[in-house]
Nucleic acid binder design. Sequence first.
DNA 1: AGCACGCCGACT
DNA 2: GTCGGCGTGCTC
Length: 725
Amino acid sequence: MTSILRLALPVPLNTLFDYRAPEAVVAAPGCRVLVPFGRRQVVGVVVERATDSELDDNKLKPIERVLDAAPLLTPELLATLRWAARYYQHPLGEVVQAALPVALRSARGLPESGVPALRLTAAGHAARGDPQRRRGTRLDALLDALAIGPLSGADLETRVAGFASAVRTALARGWIERVRVASATRPHAANAGPPLNEEQRQAADAVIAASEGFAPFLLDGVTGSGKTEVYLEIIRDCLARGRQALVLVPEIALTPQALRRFRERLGVDIAALHSGLGESERARAWLAAARGEAPVILGTRSALFVPLPNPGVIVIDEEHDTSYKQQEGFRYHARDLAVMRAKALGIPVLLGSATPSLESLANVGAGRYRSLPLRHRAGLATPPALHVVDLRRQRLQHGLAASTLDAIAACLAKGEQVLVFKNRRGYAPVLLCHDCGWSAQCPECERALTLHRHAGRLRCHHCGFEQAIPRACPSCGGLALHPLGEGTERLEEALSARFPDVPIVRVDRDTTRGRRMRDALFDSLPDAGARILIGTQMLAKGHDLPHLTLVVVVGVDEGLYSIDFRASERLGQLVVQVAGRASRAERPGAVILQTHDPAHPLLGVLLNGGYRALAAQLLEDRHNAGLPPFAHFALLRAEVKQRDVLDAFLAVAATAANDPAIITHGPLAAPMPRRAGVFRGQVLIEAADRAALQGFLPTWLDAVRALPGERKLRWSVDVDPVDLY
DNA sequence: AGCACGCCGACT
DNA sequence: GTCGGCGTGCTC
C-alpha cells in the first residue's frame, strides 16, 4: 500500500506532479521532498496527499527522500501561495519556489541554526583579569559585556557602541571566538519611547481592538506624524499576546538604523530578511520565523512569504512604494497579497503611508479598508511651503531658473542643506546636432543615448551599449553638437560653477553603487553643514537630514505630461515625500517646483489642497477615464528578435481574446518598442471587475500556450500591472 | 525551464 | 564520415 503525494515542482508548468510514497514515509503538505524528474533530480514541495492519481500507477515514480521532518510551509501559507498562483496566473511550482529562501531550494541540509555570536575564550577571561589592562576602552567594555556569556552582534550593538574594531582586535588576540547561540539569547529591556498622542493612541487602539480577526487598515499619516510609533505600539501588544509581527518595508528603508530602532524599542531580536543578506543568513532568519522563534520579522517584498505559525499582525510601511511589485517572473504585489494573507490568517493588516496609493484610498472609499488618519505633525509648527517657479521665457542656467539659484544661495548662506532632484542621471538625455537635427540614438533600442560628459561616453540606459562622444555630427559632419536637457551630472556642474566653495554630493547610480555605499553616504550627511545634494529617486527616501531645508524638483513637467497614467500620482507622492524631508520644527522648509505649466490644474490642486486633494482629483480622473482602480487590467507582454514573429504572435493572441466580459486593446507597442535589439509588444486586457478578469484569463492563456509559434518568443502575463503606459 | 532526441550543414 | 545547429516533445 502506497500513498500519492502531489508536488509543486520548480518548473514553469501549470500542473502538479504525482509521486508514490511508501506507506512508511510521512511527508505532510508543506514538506520538501527530493524526487527524480525526467533525467534530473529536483526539490519539490508536497501540496496534497492523495489515495489515487489520474495517472497509471506504473507512470508514477517514487520519491527519493523527504527533506523535512516537519512541514516547512504552514497550511495557510500553502493555501495563500495557491491562491496567488491562480490570481497571478503563474505556475504554482515557481510560486512556491519564489517563497522559499534560495538556500532551501536545494537538497543540502538546513543551515546551522541560531544566530552568530561572540564568546569570551579562556585567554579572554585571563586578559580581563589582568590588573594591567586599560580601563574605559571599547575593548575593555567588550570583554566586560561578554564576561557574563556569549552575545549576538545585535545584542552587542545595544551594549557596546562601535564595537567592530574592538571585536577585530579581540579576535586577533584570541580573547574571543565566534559561536552560534539560540536567537533572542538575552532579551533586553525595551525603551519606552515617546508617549503616543491622541491620534496615534486611537489608531493603535483601533488595530489592537481588532486583533482577533481579519481587519485591513490604512494608516494615513502625514509626514512627521509618527506612523512608526503606532506600528511599534501595535507590535508590542502583539508580542505581549505571544504572536508574531511581520513588517514589510521598501528595499531602501531596511537599514541597520531601522533594525536597531525596532530592536531597541521592542526589546527582542528582529529577524531581518532583505537582499543585502547572505543566503544562509536569510535562510536562518526565515527558519527562525517558520519555527515561531522570531517574534518580529522585518523584511522587503519577498519576506511576505515567511511562514507565520503564530500570526499576530502584518504591517506594510510606505504601502504606496512601487518596490512592492515584483517586476519579473512571478509578478506579485506584496501589498495586495499581504491583505489576502492577513485574511487567510485572520489577523489585522496595517498599510501605512503619508501618500497612500490611489488603490488603497479607493478601498477606503469603498468601505473595504478602515482609514486611520494621523493629521498632527509631532512638534512641527508649519508644513514646508510649496513654491512654483515659472520657467517660461526665462533664461535657464542648465535647467535652473535664476530665482531657484537665488533661493539655493540664500539657503546655503544660512548654513543649511539643499536637495536638487532630477530623475535622470548623466549629463544630458540627448545629444543633438543643431545643424541637421541628428541626435545620438542607441542602435539596439529605440531610444536616445544619454551623454555622460565626465566619462566622455554616450550610454544607453536601457541596454549595455556605449560609445565615445563624436566630435562632429555623423550625419552632416557639422560641429554644432549640443547637449539637450539636463541630467544630474549637468546640474552638478552648473551648481559647482555657481557655488564653487560649497561641497556638492551627487547621488545616483553612477556615483553610488550598492546599498553599503548608500548607507555610508547617508551616515555622513546629517552632521555636515551647508552643502548641496543632487540626486535621482535614490535621494527621495533614506535617512533623516536635519540640515535640509530646501528641495528643488527640477523635472516636474515629466510627471505632468508623461504617457504613463500613474506619473502624476507618483509626482504627487514624490513632492510630498521630499517636502517631508525638508520639514523641521526649528526652521521652516521649502520646496521649489520648476515647471513650464504653472497653471496646470493638478499643480494647483496639490498646492492648495496637498496630497489628499490631489489624490481625490486623480481618483475622479481615473474613474472618468475608466482606469485602475476602477478598471482591472492584465497585460500580455512578448519579446523576440524578429519583428514579424512578434507581430504574428500578438495578433493571434489578441484575436483569441474575445469574450464579452473583457475588452481587448492591441496589439500595442511596448513603452520600449525595441530594447537591446529585441522587439517588444503587448496585448492589454481590460475588465470591469476582478472576477471577470479572473474568469477570462485561464482559458485565454491556455489558448496562448497552445499557439504554434509560442516557443519562439519570450512572453509573460502581468495581472494588475503597474507600468503599462 | 532543462534535457534529450532528431534531422540537416561545414569541418577536424 | 562527425560535431553541432535549434525545432519538438516530455517531464508524475
